[in-house]
Simulated assay, not measured.
Amino acid sequence: MIIDIFGAGSLGLLFYSRLAQLEENVQLNLWTRTEAQAALIRQEGVHFYPSADAAALSQSLSISAKGNIQTTSHIDHTGDWPRADVILVTVKQTHMTPDLIRQLSKRVAEHTIIIGLQNGVRTDQLWNDKWKVYAGITTEGARKLSANTVIHSGHGETVLGQLVQRNNTTDTGYEPEVAACRQSDAIFLLLNLWTKAGLSASLSNNIEMAIYRKLIINAVINPLTALWRISNGELLNSTERISVMRQLYEEAIHVYDKADIEWSESLWDDILQVCRSTASNTSSMLADVQEGRRTEIEWINGSIVEIGRRHQAAVPGHEWVCRLIEAMTIKEAD
Score class of each variant (00 low, 15 high):
212 Y>Q: 01
151 I>P: 04
7 G>S: 02
281 N>G: 03
254 H>M: 00
45 G>I: 12
112 T>L: 03
278 T>S: 08
196 K>S: 00
12 G>I: 03
98 P>M: 00
84 A>T: 04
301 N>L: 08
258 K>R: 07
168 N>A: 10
141 G>T: 11
6 F>W: 04
45 G>Q: 13
11 L>K: 12
49 Y>S: 06
122 R>H: 10
134 Y>Q: 01
281 N>R: 06
186 A>E: 06
131 W>D: 01
227 L>E: 10
118 Q>I: 04
186 A>T: 09
308 G>C: 02
115 I>V: 12
76 D>C: 06
288 D>R: 12
312 Q>N: 15
184 S>D: 13
314 A>W: 11
69 I>K: 00
155 H>P: 09
185 D>S: 13
54 A>W: 07
70 Q>W: 04
239 T>C: 06
44 E>F: 08
311 H>E: 09
217 I>A: 05
21 Q>C: 06
303 S>A: 14
155 H>D: 10
102 R>C: 02
269 D>L: 14
210 A>V: 10
209 M>Q: 14
186 A>C: 06
256 Y>A: 00
316 P>H: 09
52 A>L: 10
238 S>Q: 04
133 V>I: 14
245 M>D: 10
79 G>Y: 08
289 V>T: 12
294 R>Y: 14
220 V>A: 08
25 N>M: 07
111 H>P: 00
75 I>L: 13
179 A>L: 07
83 R>S: 08
162 Q>V: 07
297 I>N: 12
318 H>A: 07
124 D>Q: 09
175 E>H: 15
37 Q>W: 05
213 R>W: 11
182 R>C: 08
129 D>M: 12
183 Q>I: 05
308 G>E: 03
251 E>S: 00
208 E>Q: 15
284 S>F: 03
118 Q>T: 04
67 G>M: 00
325 I>D: 14
203 L>G: 11
287 A>E: 11
